[in-house]
Computed example of a mutant assay.
Amino acid sequence: MYALNPPSPRCKANRTGFLAKSWHITSRGMFAGSCIGVICLVLCLEFLRRAGREYDSLIVRKARLRQASSEPLLADSTCDNACPAENNIINPIDTRKQATSAPANASAPCLTPYRPSLIEHTIRSLLHMVQFAVAYFIMLLAMYYNGYIIICIFIGAFLGAFIFAWEPIDLTKG
């Protein structure tokens, strides 16, 4: 949609309006700014994905701490239904663990499933909604079929993964 030479300001038919009627690229500087903006938008998407993962792990850590602090109270009660590991019950879908699983240790903590609170779930849902909206805008930008914008989306995805997806890898999985 945008040639190497910017369109003349007098020729409105050749102007590109991304996502809004007011977003018209009339110069190379505006096009370069748009490309940088697209890269930053994709970086924001990768940041939101990382923020969602980090918030979920925060919820899990808090739930484990709560359950660990209430463990002395649960020591008198039985965890037969809540803790399948203590009964040596293995998930039938995961057949890899069946061959390598050892009998559960009787002193292992009984971790019951945890449902996030209303506030925690609301924050998770808001993060998902913003992530979904940003991803949708990126998809709309890609639907302009402008090669430069698509390349900027790819560059933003690479930089975003490089910056925000550098996490430890669990060697016990896989």
Rank of each mutant, 00 (worst) to 15 (best):
R61V: 04
G174C: 04
K173M: 02
L41G: 04
P6V: 06
L74K: 15
A82L: 10
A85Y: 12
R115K: 15
N5F: 10
I119F: 13
K21N: 08
P116L: 06
C83R: 06
Q67E: 04
G37R: 11
D56T: 09
S57M: 08
V42P: 00
V42D: 04
A135S: 14
C152M: 11
P9Y: 02
F31A: 11
D76N: 12
I90N: 05
F132A: 07
A99G: 02
A32D: 03
C40P: 00
T78D: 07
S8T: 02
L126F: 10
I151P: 00
P109A: 07
S101L: 03
I138W: 12
S27G: 02
P168R: 15
N88D: 09
N105T: 11
A63E: 10
A106D: 04
A165I: 05
P84I: 04
T16C: 14
F132R: 14
C35H: 08
P168I: 09
I90M: 08
W23S: 02
I59R: 13
W23M: 06
P116D: 08
I151Y: 08
N91C: 08
S125I: 03
A102H: 12
L48S: 07
T112L: 12
I163C: 03
L159W: 06
G156T: 03
C79H: 07
D76E: 07
I36S: 15
I163A: 07
R64Q: 12
R50F: 05
P7W: 08
M139C: 09
E120T: 13
C44L: 13
L65D: 07
S69Q: 13
C152R: 10
Y148W: 13
R115E: 04
P113W: 03
E167H: 09
R28A: 13
Y145W: 14
K21W: 11
I89E: 04
P9I: 04
I90R: 15
E120C: 11
S125A: 15
T95V: 09
N146Y: 12
G156N: 03
M30R: 15
E167R: 14
A3P: 00
L140P: 00
S27R: 05
